Amino acid sequence: MEYSNVPILVRETTIMKLLYIVNVDWFFISHRLPIALTLIKNGYEVHIACGITDRKNELESLGIIVHPLSITRSGTSFFKEVKVIKEINTVVNEISPDVVHLVTIKGAIYGGLVTRNKNIKKRIVSISGLGFVFIDEGIKARLIRFIVTKLYRLALNTQNTKIIFQNETDKNTFIENKIINYKQCVLIKGSGIDLNVYKYIPEPQGEKVVMFLARLLKDKGLIEFCEAAVILRKSGFTGRFVLVGDIDLDNPNSISQVELNNYIDSGVVEHWGFLRNIPDVISKANIMVLPSYREGLPKSLIEAAACGRAVITTDVPGCRDAIIPNVTGVLVPAKSSEELQNAILSLCNDDKMRIKMGKEGRKLSELSFDIKDVINTHMNLYKGNI
Rank of each mutant, 00 (worst) to 15 (best):
Val10Asn: 13
Glu12Met: 13
Thr14Pro: 03
Ile15Asn: 13
Tyr20Asp: 15
Val24Ile: 12
Phe28Asn: 01
Ser30Glu: 14
Ser30Gln: 15
Leu33His: 02
Pro34Cys: 10
Asn42Tyr: 09
Gly43Cys: 08
Gly43Glu: 07
His47Gln: 00
Cys50Glu: 06
Gly51Tyr: 00
Ile52His: 06
Lys56Ser: 05
Glu58Leu: 14
Gly63Leu: 01
Gly63Ile: 11
His67Trp: 09
Pro68Phe: 01
Thr72Arg: 08
Lys80Pro: 06
Ile85Arg: 06
Lys86Glu: 12
Asn93Thr: 11
Ile95Arg: 11
Ser96Glu: 14
Asp98Met: 03
Val100Arg: 02
Lys106Leu: 01
Ala108Gln: 09
Ala108Pro: 08
Asn117Gln: 00
Lys121Tyr: 10
Lys122Trp: 03
Arg123Ser: 06
Ile124Gln: 03
Gly129Gln: 05
Phe132Arg: 05
Glu137Ile: 09
Gly138Asn: 13
Ala141Tyr: 09
Ala141Gly: 10
Phe146Tyr: 12
Ala155Gln: 10
Leu156Phe: 03
Gln159Thr: 09
Lys162Leu: 02
Phe174Thr: 06
Tyr182Cys: 14
Tyr182Val: 15
Gln184Lys: 05
Gly190Phe: 09
Ser191Glu: 12
Asp194Glu: 13
Gly206Ala: 07
Val209Gly: 03
Leu217Thr: 04
Lys218Asn: 01
Asp219Val: 00
Asp219Ile: 00
Glu224Cys: 00
Ala228Val: 02
Ala228His: 08
Gly236Asp: 10
Gly236Phe: 11
Thr238Arg: 15
Val242Glu: 13
Ser256Asp: 04
Tyr263Ile: 02
Asp265Asn: 12
Gly267Ala: 07
Val269Ile: 14
Glu270Thr: 13
Glu270Tyr: 13
Ile278Cys: 04
Asp280Arg: 15
Val281Ile: 15
Ile282Asn: 01
Asn286Glu: 11
Asn286Val: 11
Pro291Gln: 05
Ser292Val: 03
Tyr293Pro: 00
Arg294Ile: 01
Gly296Phe: 01
Gly296His: 08
Pro298Ala: 04
Ala305Phe: 00
Val311Tyr: 09
Val311Arg: 01
Val316Tyr: 00
Pro317Thr: 04
Asp321His: 04
Ala322Pro: 08
Ile324Gln: 07
Val330Thr: 13
Ala334Thr: 08
Glu339Ile: 03
Leu340Val: 02
Asn342Gly: 03
Asp351Met: 11
Lys359Cys: 04
Glu360Ala: 14
Glu360Met: 14
Asp373Phe: 09
Val374Arg: 02
Ile375Leu: 12
Ile375Lys: 05
Ile375Pro: 11
Asn376Ile: 11
Thr377Ala: 12
Met379Glu: 07
Leu381Ala: 04
Tyr382Phe: 15
Lys383Arg: 15
